[in-house]
C-alpha cells in the first residue's frame, strides 16, 4: 500500500468525511463525557481502538461471512472489543471507568463503528480498513476534544485538570451543565459546514451561489 492511499484515508477520516461533521453520526452516547478533557480523550481513544480493531476483524472475515447475518456478526465483534476496553479501564483506571459509567458500554451502539464497518471494511482489505478505523476514530476524538476544551476552560478554568485561569475567572456554571454541549456542538457544526462549503465553491471555479 502506498503512502498516497494512507494519506488519503487519514485526510478523509479526519476532515473531508469526518463522521461527525459530514455524516452526522455517532454523537449519541458521548457528548455526556465532554465536560472534562481527560474523559473525552479516554473516550475518544477507546472508540478509536474499538473502531480500528472491529474494522480489521470484519475485513479479515468479510469473505466468509454470509451476507444476511453480517449485521449480527458485526455487533458481536464490536461488543467483544468493547468488553476488552471495559475490563482494561476497570483494571488500570478504576476512577476513569467510574466517571465514564455506562458510556463505555454505549460505544457498541455508536453508529460510527457500524457505519464504517458497513461502508468501508466490507469492501476493503484489512490493513486499509484498520487505518480507516484509526482515522475515523481520530476525527471523532478531535471533535470531542474541541467541545471539551471550551467546556472545561470556561466551566472549571482548567485544561486537563491543570488550573490555568486564576481566581479572577468567574466560572460559567452553564458550561458544566448539559445544554452547553448542545450549543457548542451546534456552533462547531456551523463553523465546519461553512468552511467545507467555501472549499467546494472554490473547487467549482469560484462560482458564486445566490
Amino acid at each position: 500500500m502506498d503512502k498516497k492511499r494512507v494519506k488519503q484515508i487519514f485526510k478523509s477520516g479526519i476532515w473531508d468525511d469526518n463522521p461527525v461533521f459530514r455524516q452526522v453520526i455517532g454523537i449519541c452516547s458521548s457528548l455526556a463525557v465532554t465536560n472534562l478533557l481527560m474523559s473525552s480523550l479516554i473516550m475518544g481513544l477507546a472508540l478509536t481502538f474499538v473502531t480500528a480493531f472491529s474494522e480489521l476483524t470484519i475485513s479479515i472475515i468479510r469473505k466468509f461471512t454470509p451476507k444476511h447475518i453480517r449485521m449480527v456478526v458485526q455487533v458481536l465483534i464490536i461488543s467483544a472489543f468493547v468488553i476488552i476496553v471495559d475490563i482494561f479501564l476497570k483494571a488500570y483506571y478504576p476512577e476513569m471507568s467510574k466517571a465514564l459509567g455506562p458510556y463505555v458500554g454505549l460505544i457498541i451502539t455508536n453508529c460510527i463503528i457500524m457505519g464504517r464497518c458497513e461502508a468501508f471494511a466490507q469492501s476493503n482489505p484489512p490493513i486499509s480498513s484498520f487505518l480507516d478505523g484509526i482515522a475515523s476514530g481520530l476525527g471523532y476524538t478531535m471533535v470531542l476534544l474541541m467541545i471539551a476544551f471550551i467546556r472545561e476552560l470556561m466551566g472549571f478554568g482548567s485544561i486537563f485538570g491543570i488550573q490555568l485561569l486564576g481566581n479572577w475567572w468567574t466560572r460559567w456554571t452553564i458550561m458544566v451543565m448539559p445544554p452547553s454541549a448542545f450549543f457548542i456542538m451546534g456552533v462547531i457544526f456551523w463553523w465546519a459546514r461553512s468552511k467545507t462549503e467555501k472549499k467546494e465553491e472554490k473547487k467549482e471555479g469560484g462560482k458564486v451561489t445566490a
Binding site: P179, F183, M185, G186, R193, K195
Partner: peptide
C-alpha cells in the same frame, strides 16, 4: 437560516434551548 447552520446545526441549538428549559 445561514447556510452552514441548516439541518443538524440548528437542531442541536434548539435542543440546547430545550435542555436549558429542562434544567
Amino acid at each position: 437560516l445561514p447556510k452552514g447552520l441548516e439541518g443538524a446545526g440548528i437542531t442541536l441549538i434548539i435542543t440546547g434551548l430545550m435542555a436549558l428549559a429542562f434544567v
